[in-house]
Design a protein around this nucleic acid. Structure first.
Lengths: 337, 337
DNA sequence: CTCGATCGTCGAAGCGCTTCGACGGTCGAG
DNA sequence: CTCGACCGTCGAAGCGCTTCGACGATCGAG
């Protein structure tokens, strides 16, 4: 029984009165910023529980100049790998909570103005930027606002920033190395939608670069081609690719929505997998697992966790590395040989 | 040039000084809660722009007892229709911003404790609850905390609540009516994963009920069966279904991940679509459009908009209807006859 | 012309919290 | 023993904003 109607804010003064101490003492117990005797601490904590006290977020933000909230700026537009984004978001929220922070969801459509608003109103202490382009307009703004930020993906110039990403270049190389080792001499990358390349999205460009570099190094042929979304489009793009390059026997797919249709279409084109054609994907692991697909998993959770951890370190003033690249790994399943 | 280092908070006092008025006057200009002469207002607004002033969210929340933030409580667990959730989230953020509110992302894993925390700390003014189950533990809590909330989906007992949802019962009926009108006498519902039914998730149960009711009313046979995710699982469940009920000629699919595989599998079973078997889905429209699928679209955006609008009305003390059901519509494409 | 309304503005009082400086009380070193 | 250092606690001052009451000025009605 709290003796208060629900919805009424329990204040630190209530707790102090209940425990017979000063409000500041309660604050120090909760923050641990000054030593408090075990007895007093025990009494205070008991009162906190008894009253169901939660500090008023606004008041705390005002006094301490920290909101304990971070912003997650999501793309939410076409061409995005939706499930990846989702799993990533989950990891971010969970990790942030573990660091006693909440997550504000901001859509990229709000653009730079959104960042201005958020920074100016002290709504958040820092931002996580997803879907970063090679030349991203938000990046200079971040520098200018002196708003602590961590980027998912990395822009061309990462000076003074903190970026986390799967090493997509290496992932591309890995796929080609795997196929080349299995004896494939002609390899094709069926990539993201053209719009994604046009936007200059890092992961697409870097993967392509990795594929090309590895192919050159290993002396195999590699062609690359964007691929639109939707079963019909995938099928069309795949057929066109194989019509132009009929001698391709190794396929690297980096497009979530293409995985299913590619696997369904190849047999119809008279190509058995992996007998005639090997398929390797860069995609979430569950998706690949469902189809027994050889893949380089995109570790969305791990990226999310790392990103939050980096941001937390920045918020506490620690220096952090500019670029954190996660090492990709290839999981061999049934679609490659 | 603001004359302040970036990251320094511009306060209302700065604006007041710059405009030569009192701080309270600035506040009234911005809130419109008292009449201010056009000249003064103009001067103040100019200063606001010149200094790039954004009110400090915490201070504002403290003084006004409104955070101008709503919480979006997302499931983020298996069996969810991920793209739907995503589009929904986008609509929520966009609509909320239009009402001058931000959105805090909360995962359902935090459970009731999360709601307590959020309510107690005045972090948010209200909550949007997704993925509501028929008997949802968060619902009584919402009542108890007197926390304004809007549910997406609706629980068995919606007294005193506000719920928004597509009328899934009607959607189920619509599909059956369409198939029956085309002459199909034996119809099957290939539904959500079994876990979704077991959780008592409203949309799955209501759709099934609608299918059964319409079938009975129209005198056609209807069988229903859950369907797991992933191409292989879908194929297996579909084959089992058709083995048990070979005379089924009309298929209702309510499972995003099943749409593609179902369409791919039917021809392999010697069933041409729509010649031998008609397929109708309840799924996002883009997904259906890609495959030329007859469907009842799930209007994620519309639900998101409505939900936010309802919450805003609740926050301003207006009474709102307990249940808002969106009328489903069937779009005929190439997979049904 | 005077008086009450009305309008536009101001000053001050908090909102609930953190944090700084201060102050008694202990305790160990000299 | 005495004195300084330290420990545990308190009171007060603000953080930036909203909002209430007050107050001069303006204006129309009597």
């Amino acid at each position: 029984m709290t003796g208060r109607s629900p919805g009424e804010q329990v204040t630190i003064a209530d707790v102090a009165r209940h425990a017979g101490v000063a409000a500041s003492t309660v604050s120090y117990v909760l923050s641990g910023k000054r030593t408090i005797s075990a007895t007093t601490r025990g009494r205070v904590l008991a009162s906190v529980r008894a009253l169901g006290y939660h500090p008023h977020a606004g008041a705390r933000a005002l006094a301490s100049r920290k909101a304990n909230v971070i912003a997650l700026v999501l793309p939410l537009r076409t061409g995005m790998q939706v499930p990846v984004v989702m799993r990533f978001a989950t990891a971010v929220v969970t990790t942030a909570r573990r660091h006693d922070h909440d997550v504000l969801l901001v859509t990229a459509d709000e653009g730079p103005a959104g960042l201005h608003r958020i920074a100016g109103s002290a709504l958040v202490d820092g931002v996580l930027l997803m879907d970063v382009e090679l030349e991203d307009s938000r990046v200079p703004l971040l520098r200018e606002l002196a708003l602590p930020g961590v980027l998912i993906g990395h822009p061309a110039d990462s000076t003074g920033l903190a970026c986390v990403d799967l090493d997509f270049r290496r992932a591309g190389e890995l796929c080609v190395e795997h196929l080349a080792a299995a004896g494939h001499r002609r390899i094709a990358l069926l990539g993201a939608p053209a719009a994604v390349y046009d936007r200059g999205t890092g992961f697409a460009h870097r993967t392509r670069a990795g594929v090309r570099a590895a192919a050159e190094r290993l002396g195999v042929d590699a062609v690359t081609r964007p691929c639109e979304e939707g079963p019909a489009a995938v099928r069309r793009d795949l057929e066109a690719l194989l019509a132009d390059h009929p001698d391709v026997t190794g396929l690297v797919v980096q497009n979530e929505s293409a995985v299913g249709p590619v696997l369904a279409t190849l047999p119809l084109l008279g190509r058995r997998v992996p007998g005639d054609t090997s398929v390797v994907a860069i995609c979430p692991d569950e998706l690949a697992e469902q189809s027994g697909l050889t893949c380089v998993p995109v570790p969305a959770e791990e990226v999310g966790r790392q990103a939050v951890a980096l941001l937390m370190r920045r918020l506490s003033g620690e220096p952090v590395p500019e670029v954190t690249l996660l090492e990709p790994h290839l999981t061999v399943r049934d679609t490659s040989r």
